Simulated assay, not measured.
Amino acid sequence: MNEVVGEAKTATKGAREYLTFRLGQEEYGIDILKVQEIRGYEKPTRIANVPEFIRGVVNLRGTIVPIVDMRLKFNCEKAEYNGFTVVIILNLYNRVVGIVVDSVSDVMELTSEQVRPAPDLDASLDSSAVLGLGSVNERMLILLDIEKLMASVDMGLVSLNA
């Protein structure tokens, strides 16, 4: 019996925690350590000459935070704002950025055995920003490298040198 407990501790030691969220029918996961807080959606102040997926900025306790609508970034069918719509506030490279998602699900711990490489697909999402696919029972998560995604040239939000 002690061997089983020892194995469980070893598996947990190599595990990482992901905040899971929904965009349309898909479920995504990002490293929980990058998440600063989760807030309800509030309409941001629009900024001229930015891509459509950058909805604008909000004032978060004195910090001006750019807000990216991930549904628009990932070309989802529709971006509807309702009571479930939330903003995940991220701290990336010492810069605060908010991402709009349909809903937040939960925090999930995944071991390396539960993560598979992502297939190469020609999609709107830069495949280098996909860490892999996590599976737990019947759930399949698309695991994102949110820092790499937010540092991409088309986003222009964070610099890797910051």
Rank of each mutant, 00 (worst) to 15 (best):
E37R: 11
K43C: 11
K78I: 00
V50W: 06
V115E: 02
L33N: 09
Q36W: 06
L90T: 13
Y81G: 13
N91M: 09
L19A: 08
G83R: 09
E147P: 03
G56P: 07
R116A: 09
E147N: 03
G83N: 09
A8P: 06
S124L: 08
S127R: 15
P51D: 10
G98V: 08
N59A: 12
L144R: 08
G29E: 00
L144Q: 13
R16I: 12
L90I: 10
G156H: 13
P117S: 09
K34N: 09
V57C: 09
E109F: 13
G56R: 03
N59V: 09
F53H: 01
N91D: 00
K34I: 08
A129F: 12
E3V: 14
S103C: 07
R22V: 04
V87S: 05
L92Q: 07
P44T: 08
N49F: 12
V96H: 07
G56A: 03
P44I: 04
L125C: 12
M1Y: 01
Q114S: 07
M150C: 12
N91T: 11
K34H: 10
E3M: 11
L160I: 00
E42W: 15
I38R: 11
V158I: 13
R95S: 08
I64G: 05
S124M: 12
R116M: 14
M70K: 05
V50Y: 07
M150K: 02
D106R: 12
G62Y: 04
I64A: 06
I64C: 03
E52Q: 09
T45H: 15
L160S: 02
P51I: 03
T111A: 11
I142P: 02
E37T: 09
P66R: 06
V130D: 10
L157E: 01
G56I: 00
R95G: 00
G134Y: 05
V101A: 00
E26P: 00
Y18I: 00
V101L: 02
D126K: 11
D31F: 01
D31T: 03
V86Q: 15
T111V: 08
V5S: 10
E77L: 12
D145Y: 06
G24E: 04
E37P: 10
D69P: 03
L92A: 05
K9T: 13
L72T: 02
R46W: 13
F74G: 04
I64P: 11
A118Y: 05
I99P: 12
T85G: 10
Q25L: 10
I54V: 07
R139D: 06
G40W: 11
V4M: 05
Y28F: 02
E77A: 12
V96P: 02
Y18C: 03
M70D: 02
S135Q: 11
